[in-house]
Simulated scan of single mutants.
Amino acid sequence: MINIFCELEKNTRIIVNQRINDYLDLYMTFYRDLGSEQGFRSLFPPMIWIEDEEKCIKTMIELDAWTRDEHLHHLKPIHEFALYRV
């Protein structure tokens, strides 16, 4: 579960994470069907994608997994940026 910095009840945080995961599922489907270039490249600035494509892919996979589990995860700036773009 992604940690949301608000005074929200746990049930509300769960619902918000489920909605985020609904959007991420779309990008994960593109990734599985079309590859990383079509699935994720548009979510990252060109220089970040060129410098470390694997990190970008790992970031999206982590976000997808984190929105489905029960543990609280604190986002790094790259995770926050990817979520903003989603």
Results as ranks from 00 to 15, higher is better:
residue 1 M to S: 09
residue 1 M to R: 03
residue 2 I to V: 15
residue 2 I to H: 01
residue 3 N to V: 09
residue 4 I to G: 07
residue 4 I to T: 08
residue 5 F to M: 06
residue 6 C to E: 08
residue 7 E to F: 07
residue 8 L to F: 15
residue 8 L to S: 11
residue 8 L to C: 14
residue 8 L to Q: 11
residue 9 E to P: 10
residue 10 K to A: 14
residue 12 T to Q: 15
residue 13 R to P: 01
residue 13 R to L: 15
residue 15 I to D: 11
residue 17 N to W: 07
residue 18 Q to W: 12
residue 19 R to G: 08
residue 20 I to A: 01
residue 20 I to F: 01
residue 21 N to G: 15
residue 21 N to F: 04
residue 21 N to P: 05
residue 22 D to T: 10
residue 23 Y to D: 04
residue 24 L to D: 04
residue 26 L to T: 07
residue 27 Y to T: 04
residue 28 M to R: 13
residue 29 T to Y: 11
residue 29 T to K: 13
residue 30 F to C: 06
residue 31 Y to L: 14
residue 32 R to A: 13
residue 32 R to K: 13
residue 34 L to P: 04
residue 34 L to S: 12
residue 34 L to Y: 13
residue 35 G to F: 09
residue 35 G to S: 09
residue 36 S to H: 12
residue 37 E to L: 13
residue 38 Q to Y: 13
residue 41 R to V: 07
residue 42 S to G: 12
residue 44 F to D: 04
residue 46 P to F: 10
residue 50 I to Q: 11
residue 52 D to C: 10
residue 52 D to E: 13
residue 52 D to Q: 10
residue 52 D to F: 07
residue 53 E to H: 14
residue 53 E to G: 07
residue 53 E to R: 15
residue 54 E to R: 14
residue 54 E to H: 11
residue 55 K to N: 12
residue 56 C to M: 02
residue 56 C to Q: 03
residue 56 C to T: 06
residue 56 C to S: 09
residue 57 I to L: 11
residue 62 E to T: 02
residue 62 E to A: 08
residue 63 L to E: 12
residue 67 T to Y: 00
residue 68 R to Q: 15
residue 68 R to I: 05
residue 69 D to S: 08
residue 69 D to P: 02
residue 69 D to C: 14
residue 74 H to D: 02
residue 74 H to N: 10
residue 75 L to D: 02
residue 77 P to I: 01
residue 78 I to V: 10
residue 79 H to N: 03
residue 80 E to Y: 05
residue 81 F to S: 13
residue 81 F to E: 10
residue 81 F to P: 00
residue 82 A to M: 10
residue 82 A to L: 12
residue 83 L to N: 01
residue 83 L to E: 00
residue 84 Y to F: 02
residue 85 R to G: 00
